[in-house]
Design a protein around this nucleic acid. Structure first.
Lengths: 211, 211
DNA sequence: TTAAATTAATTTGTATACAAATTTCAAGTG
DNA sequence: CACTTGAAATTTGTATACAAATTAATTTAA
């Protein structure tokens, strides 16, 4: 367990619910669990705190943030502002090679039958990222990456992905088609609808079964 | 020099050019300079890295990011997307008390004659923040705070603030007036123009005298 | 019984020492 | 002279030990 991978591992374990929302993490517990000293644990915690994947609980202790409908809605609203911007700025630099790579990802999602909700979520994000990366906007990409990590914590609900997976996947194909035809405005409109729809599905689900 | 303040101090010292853009920071140098061991230095560096106030330079070393017109433009574009959203979401919760506090800040800017560019920048941001805070959007406010810290590094140029200070200040008063009159759309339009103008002034200056 | 205050327990923060990695620089090779 | 190669120097990463702070528990007083 090296330093960078401890950060990755801890992040993954938070996503996967090993350290559930609302739980308080302490350095000793984590250092025993991961079989390292507290120093690399501190480094990882510090980074996760700065990314808001952990929040202060009291004066000195860190907590896995609770999942709330209000915050989910906020995260999707922010995505709704930034992702269209990313797509617009990426568009002039989009190549057929890149669109082809994006298409490959969609094929992989279709072919791999038994994907976990997490795996499908990761591939979906890679698809979006493939398009946005052409924007060459380091800060925007960093923010979107961070937002996506936040959102990922909310996507453990099987019900949501089952309901939405097909619609979402189809929209990805449509998005690709519009971009191939250079119909940027239509692509952006579809993307906005895509994000809004996903956000509404999630928040309505959270309001029904809070956490 | 306690832990939290080391982070604050280091951040301030980066802003003020003690560790100039492009310079590589190493832990030992910093621990000697600030008279602490490397552990709290590491904590501060880790946090600053996560906020992109430091970036990797090579495999293991950290650098104060260079200032470029391209990145400045990107930062202002992101603000242009997010700040109107913050204002819109804040608007329903805005009170006369809050608007009054915002006004107090503008008065302070006028009255304090010999403010440094940095101080004026800080007060300007406090004014914006006063309005946005009513939005009650923790993630949005966190992102805006982070973006502002990025932008602050670019505002060391006296020429810019001297040119723009008056216009900017006047627009702040207009913004306040529009909000008092419940003219949200006009206020948002003014805010957008305000940000865009500031961004263009900065980037054009950077293109003339790169860094 | 509740609330405040004090003490004990736990937990975080920091320094030092050492291991592992990276970076630098000089020597060797084509 | 450019380009590898490899060792020396520097720098980062980690463990352990101890100090400082926070959190919890217990006592005391209203």
């Amino acid at each position: 367990m090296t330093k960078a991978s401890l950060y990755q591992q801890l992040k993954q374990d938070i996503r996967q619910g090993i350290w559930p929302a609302g739980s308080v993490l302490n350095q000793q517990k984590l250092s025993e669990y991961y079989q390292v000293s507290r120093i690399p644990v501190r480094d990882a915690l510090q980074q996760l705190k700065a990314e808001a994947l952990l929040v202060m609980a009291g004066k000195a202790s860190l907590m896995v943030p609770p999942l709330t409908a209000i915050e989910a809605e906020e995260l999707y609203q922010i995505r709704l502002q930034l992702e269209p911007m990313a797509l617009r700025r990426a568009f002039p630099q989009l190549t057929f090679a890149l669109l082809g790579q994006a298409e490959d990802l969609l094929h992989r999602i279709e072919q791999d039958q038994n994907l976990s909700a997490a795996d499908r979520g990761a591939l979906n994000w890679q698809f979006h990222l493939m398009l946005y990366q052409a924007s060459q906007c380091p800060h925007l990409l960093r923010l979107l990456h961070s937002l996506h990590q936040q959102v990922e914590r909310y996507l453990g609900f099987q019900e949501i992905s089952l309901n939405y997976a097909d619609t979402s996947h189809m929209e990805h194909w449509q998005l690709l088609e519009l971009l191939r035809n250079q119909e940027l405005d239509a692509a952006v409109a579809l993307l906005q609808q895509h994000i809004q729809q996903a956000g509404e599905l999630l928040t309505s689900h959270l309001r029904q079964q809070p956490a």
